[in-house]
Nucleic acid binder design. Structure first.
Lengths: 338, 338
DNA sequence: AATCGTGATGTAAAGCTTTTCATTCACCCT
DNA sequence: AGGGTGAATGAAAAGCTTTACATCACGATT
């Protein structure tokens, strides 16, 4: 016995299917006692809407797809919260797709959108991803897409972001203000646009303060905890030891600190560490992490609003939100500056 | 100008819509040069399948819905990875729904499944959630649902889990083996079935070792970092200080340790701490956390396989997977036992 | 040469809902 | 009493795809 359809309900209630449909969507327009009969029939049969049929007819799905490169990265959680809130308010269901940075999966979600299973997409992924290679995405141009946090070279996409370069510069400038003169940078993966922006900010802060830049003070990382650990080993081997390090994100900062701790190097006594993102654990880490906070919930909410306005056929512009430098216990003034 | 349909493609390629459909799904059955013509027409028009129509016709959506109570909880990430893997292998797209433990959103995802937008659901949520109150979910009984990690009173649901009571018992027994005689327990929210199971394991371990149980050694928590902090304050106020504490999850353990650190109480010198879950950060925390590891990826994969087998009309049974006690630096033997 | 088989393609129905337009009916007003 | 008004409901089309079945052509077999 298969699912009941609207027709089954109509038969039992003794009305036409049009009336059943109206009962469910425009209850006011149907006579009270008819409505009563129909709802009883719905309960009796256990009828539920067939979303495929509805979607086919209405040409929309009332769903928004959020594509995340790695759901395990807690950084995204708060953004999702912001999106969720706005989506619910607009009557949309938020669905998350996790690509794991795997191309095949990215493609799967691209198709999801293209096939009309979602009315729009919010990309937290690398914008260099499959999204813009898909034939006709740009040609068709009809599918609303907003990117968050990573602004790529694809200007045609609406985006929400912070000024990563300025944020990096602010973080490094703070270290300089605390008396540090030898400041290293633990980068993210260099293919990533964010990484390059933060790197630029780091270099600019040094240049603005008249400090000499050293190639060997730029330690390679990939945003993972393990690469933070590896970076500490590199740090150990340096001839000229920096007294502070600016990390491209909190996870690598934690990896670095963790290794330092094991080696008896105390943060911030022996070296100051600044992270980036202010992830959930940053404040309960030991020591609590000085870091750059991005207004994540607000970013998500803003992006969702932008998407809605695109769906409504408006033409909004990209938005840049403010960041905040959060001072905690992983940084300290140098002895000279005290 | 609206989206091209299969009919547009057919017209341009000079074939019937049936042939177009076959080109896309059974390429071998159509003559090579016809196929070529059709694919060219597809490229030219930028045609993409209308998922709603397909789904309506095929009576399935090739989508699996995973419902998570809180996407910010890193605990779930690895489970999702396991699910993803099996889902991809089966040609299904995995979509994540985050309820934030909000009833209205839970309902939204229940409807998602009921409306046929997904072929099945994996619940990482509390099984006491809306899922079983929805009229006819059980009556209809046609919608495949598998729960992970939390086995509730609803026996009719297939579930994947570990033996939480035995795991808790193992953790506490380890502390006892290290010489601890006064062991506290930082619980989760008591409404949660997991919490009760772990609590039972704690009590049983004490009882089996002939240790006296103390009401005031059961500290209340709610799985959050903040409650771990609060628990430390309670610990401080205890008349009889425990030398070890078993926490219902890693987050509360970290909150506890973090507060301890601030107060100058050193872990594990002054108190041993055991967590539960082995979340991502557990190993890079300072000190690295002794904890109970759940085989999360395996749990996800297993659940997905169960779901597939239910969809295939088989009748699999619930599965219980093994856990593992991971010894790290947050626990130490007592002086007496050394 | 007639028949059969086979491979390629077309026809048409089914899947379920929303929505426009038409119809019916009751009631009111003049 | 007749016409008009408005509310309530019904009939039917449209939305797009998959698929069972029919058709057709052509080569092979006997």
């Amino acid at each position: 016995m298969s699912r009941p359809t609207i027709e089954d309900v109509a038969r039992i209630a003794g009305v036409s299917i049009a009336t059943v449909s109206r009962c469910l969507h425009l209850p006011d327009v149907v006579a009270p006692n008819t409505r009563e009969r129909v709802l009883a029939a719905v309960r009796q049969t256990g009828y539920t809407l067939n979303a495929a049929a509805q979607s086919l007819r209405q040409r929309r799905s009332n769903t928004v797809l959020v594509v995340v490169p790695d759901i395990g990265n807690t950084f995204f959680a708060e953004i999702l919260g912001g999106i969720q809130q706005e989506a619910s308010a607009a009557g949309l269901t938020m669905l998350i797709g996790d690509t794991g940075r795997v191309k095949a999966r990215e493609d799967a979600y691209v198709r999801y959108l293209l096939n009309g299973r979602a009315d729009g997409a919010l990309l937290l992924a690398d914008p260099q991803a499959a999204w813009f290679d898909i034939p006709n995405v740009n040609v068709l141009g009809i599918r609303p897409i907003v990117t968050i946090s990573e602004v790529g070279p694809h200007q045609q996409t609406i985006a929400v972001s912070i000024d990563n370069e300025a944020a990096a510069q602010a973080a490094v400038s703070h270290l300089i203000a605390q008396g540090h003169r030898l400041i290293a940078h633990l980068t993210g993966p260099l293919t990533n646009i964010l990484t390059r922006q933060r790197l630029d900010g780091y270099r600019r802060a040094l240049a603005d303060a008249g400090l000499t830049w050293r190639q060997d003070h730029e330690l390679p990382g990939d945003f993972g905890v393990a690469s933070g650990r590896a970076a500490f080993a590199l740090y150990r081997a340096l001839d000229v030891k920096p007294t502070a390090i600016f990390c491209a994100n909190d996870e690598t900062a934690m990896g670095f600190i963790s290794s330092a701790h094991c080696a008896g190097v105390i943060v911030p006594r022996d070296i100051s560490v600044v992270g980036f993102d202010d992830i959930h654990f940053a404040q309960s880490y030991i020591p609590a992490l000085t870091t750059v906070r991005q207004p994540r919930a607000e970013m998500g909410a803003t992006a969702m609003r932008l998407l809605l306005s695109i769906i409504a056929n408006e033409a909004p512009a990209s938005i840049r939100l403010p960041f905040e430098l959060v001072l905690r216990d992983s940084t300290a003034a140098t002895f000279a500056a005290r």
